[in-house]
């Protein structure tokens, strides 16, 4: 038996798929920027901040890393409204992504911070720099250099994992694929296109991250 591929039937929906793709890209870029910012703050607080703040970070990180992303998403979108916090699906998707990547990147960046030799920190404070100046000018730069590949992988994982937000009807690429499939019943073609789109997206993201890494960390090391 031969299945006859009919991609032509997807054509009327090209704009839907494109919008989904754009949503996924924007979601990834925004949650990467915000998530890495959260991770940097979390890792800094954990290593350089007061103990009580460190404990708050530990609870946050462990809570997120030991629960499924989809449950976190459902909690934010379906759970919070019961407590009076109503978010639309797009906001909920962005928030869940940032919280999730924030927790993972906290741990990754913390590993980088701890890999910076203690002597560099002592040299910094001996030059009359404050703890936070040492963190900013000496530690974080070196830490990011060390953990950049690990962080890049996590960003790809989160980008692919973002397909889950379609479950709260945030209109990402997967949501668009589901939508098109439900209209024209060309499931094979639609999900083949979606799969390839994610594949290309991942490969391109990886290349972009590698390029950015070269620009940021071009110094000899």
């Amino acid at each position: 038996m031969l299945y006859k591929l009919q991609f032509a039937e997807l054509l009327p929906y090209w704009d839907v798929l494109l919008q989904g793709l754009v949503f996924t890209i924007v979601l990834t870029i925004v949650s990467t920027a915000a998530g890495v910012a959260v991770g940097t703050a979390g890792a800094s607080a954990r290593t350089f901040g007061p103990a009580w703040l460190g404990w708050i970070v530990v609870v946050y990180v462990e809570l997120i890393r030991n629960t499924p992303f989809i449950v976190q998403l459902f909690f934010i979108f379906f759970g919070l409204p019961a407590a009076g916090v109503k978010l639309d699906e797009t906001t909920a998707a962005f928030l869940a992504m940032v919280i999730n990547l924030g927790a993972y990147s906290t741990e990754i960046i913390r590993a980088g911070i701890e890999a910076v030799p203690k002597g560099h920190i002592e040299a910094g404070v001996s030059l009359a720099m404050t703890k936070w100046e040492v963190l900013r000018h000496i530690v974080l730069n070196q830490a990011f250099r060390k953990i950049y590949p690990a962080l890049s992988s996590q960003i790809i994982i989160v980008m692919l994992g973002s397909a889950v937000v379609s479950q709260i009807s945030a209109q990402d690429l997967t949501y668009a694929a589901n939508f098109v499939a439900s209209r024209d019943f060309r499931n094979f073609e639609v999900y083949l296109v979606a799969t390839l789109a994610y594949l290309v997206l991942a490969i391109v993201t990886r290349a972009v991250l590698r390029g950015l890494g070269r620009i940021f960390f071009k110094a000899a090391s």
Binding site: P117, G119, H120, E122, A123, L127, A128, T130
Partner: peptide, 22 residues
């Protein structure tokens, strides 16, 4: 302590140069 360390410099056994800077 910052004021103190402006007056008291220190050089270490392991150099401790910052590798990301020239």
């Amino acid at each position: 302590v910052r004021e103190l360390r402006r007056h008291v410099g220190m050089v270490f056994q392991q150099f401790n140069l910052f590798p990301h800077l020239t």
